[in-house]
C-alpha cells in the first residue's frame, strides 16, 4: 500500500518535468516577441534587446527551461509579463473556484450517476434503455452550451441564480453554493451520464458472477447482495471513471468558468493563452498537471482499499 503510493509519487516527478518542458517548448514557439508585446510596437531595437536580456529570452531554450525549473522548485513561478503579478499568488488565488467547481461536479455526478446506473442494471428493461439514451444526450450537449442555456433561463429569464461571479466559501458558504449551482449544473450532466453508463456496465458485470447466485441460493437477501456485495465489487471501474471524469472536468472548467466569469484557473489560462502570457500559462499547466496527478493517486488509493487483490500485491 505504502509502496503503491510511493511508486506513484516517484513517477509523478518525471511526468511533471516532461509536461512542463513540453508546454515550455510549445509556448516558446508562440509567434510574436514577448518583449515587443510588453514595450509596444514603437520601441527601439536596443530597448527590446535589453528587455529580452532582462527576461532571459536571449538564452537557449533549454537554459531558459532549466532556470525556470530551478525557480519553480523553490516555489517561484515568475511573474506575469503583462500585469507583473506573482504567478504563484495569482494561481493560488485562482485555485479555489476551480477546485470547488470540479469537486462539486464530480460529487454530484458520482451520486446521480451511480444511483441511476445501479438501478438500471438491477431493474433492467426500460430504465436501462433510458439511462443509455440519457447518457448519450448528456454527452451530446456540450457543457458550455448547457451553461449558456442555464444562464438564459435561470439567470436572465428568471433571475434565480447569479449569471456570473464567485463568492469565497470562507466568507459565505451559502452564497458560495448559490454562485456555484449553475456552473455545477452545467458541468454535471455529461459527467453524471458517463458515470451512470459505467456504473451500469460494472454492475451488470458483477451481477453475472457466480458468487451472486451462490449468495442468493444460500439465503442472502437481494438488497444485501446488491448494496453490500455487488456495489463494492462494481466500485473499481466506477472509481476509475470518476478519476477520468474529474480530470476531464478540468477541461470543461475552462469553458464554464469563461461563461460564468468565475475567477478560476481555467479562465486564467484561457486569458493567458490569448495574451501570450507565458509564465502564467506555464504556472497553470503545472497546477493542472498536479491536480490530475493527485486525482490519479486518490483513485489508486480507493482502488486498493476496495480490492484486496490490489492491496495485497
Amino acid at each position: 500500500m505504502t509502496r503503491l503510493v510511493l511508486r506513484r509519487l516517484a513517477w509523478s516527478v518525471p511526468m511533471l518535468l516532461v509536461i512542463t518542458l513540453l508546454s515550455f517548448v510549445l509556448v516558446s514557439l508562440i509567434p510574436g516577441d514577448t518583449a515587443r508585446a510588453i514595450l509596444g510596437p514603437s520601441a527601439a531595437p536596443e530597448q527590446i534587446d535589453a528587455v529580452r536580456a532582462q527576461l532571459g529570452l536571449d538564452q537557449p531554450l533549454l537554459q531558459q527551461y532549466l532556470s525556470w525549473l530551478g525557480r519553480a522548485i523553490r516555489g517561484d513561478l515568475g511573474s506575469s509579463l503583462l500585469t507583473g503579478v506573482d504567478v504563484s499568488q495569482l494561481v493560488n488565488a485562482r485555485l479555489a473556484p476551480t477546485l470547488s467547481l470540479i469537486t462539486l461536479a464530480t460529487l454530484s455526478a458520482g451520486v446521480i450517476g451511480v444511483t441511476l446506473g445501479v438501478q438500471s442494471a438491477v431493474r433492467g428493461g426500460r430504465l436501462g434503455r433510458l439511462v443509455d439514451l440519457a447518457s448519450m444526450s448528456g454527452l451530446a450537449v456540450p457543457g458550455f452550451a448547457l451553461a449558456l442555456l442555464l444562464v438564459a433561463v435561470f439567470a436572465v429569464r428568471w433571475p434565480l441564480f447569479p449569471a456570473t461571479g464567485y463568492v469565497d466559501f470562507a466568507s459565505s458558504p451559502g452564497q458560495w453554493l448559490h454562485a456555484l449551482v449553475l456552473p455545477v449544473a452545467a458541468a454535471c450532466p455529461g459527467a453524471a451520464t458517463a458515470v451512470a453508463k459505467q456504473a451500469r456496465d460494472a454492475t451488470l458485470d458483477v451481477l453475472d458472477r457466480e458468487f451472486v447466485r451462490v449468495m442468493q441460493a444460500n439465503g442472502v437477501p437481494r438488497r444485501t447482495i446488491i448494496y453490500r456485495h455487488v456495489l463494492r465489487n462494481a466500485a473499481g471501474p466506477v472509481v476509475s471513471l470518476l478519476g477520468v471524469v474529474s480530470a476531464s472536468l478540468l477541461g470543461a472548467a475552462v469553458l464554464i468558468e469563461n461563461v460564468f466569469a468565475l475567477p478560476g484557473l481555467g479562465s486564467a489560462a484561457a486569458v493567458a493563452a490569448s495574451q501570450h502570457d507565458l509564465p502564467v500559462l506555464q504556472g497553470a499547466v503545472v497546477y493542472f498537471t498536479l491536480i490530475v496527478i493527485v486525482i490519479g493517486l486518490l483513485v489508486d488509493l480507493v482502488q486498493a482499499w476496495l480490492d484486496p487483490k490490489v492491496r495485497l500485491r
Binding site: A273, L281, F288
Partner: peptide
C-alpha cells in the same frame, strides 16, 4: 492522460 488537455490545446492554438 496527465496532460491537461484543454490547456495544452490553448497553448497549441495560440502557438
Amino acid at each position: 492522460f496527465a496532460v491537461p488537455g484543454i490547456i495544452l490545446l490553448l497553448v497549441v492554438a495560440s502557438t
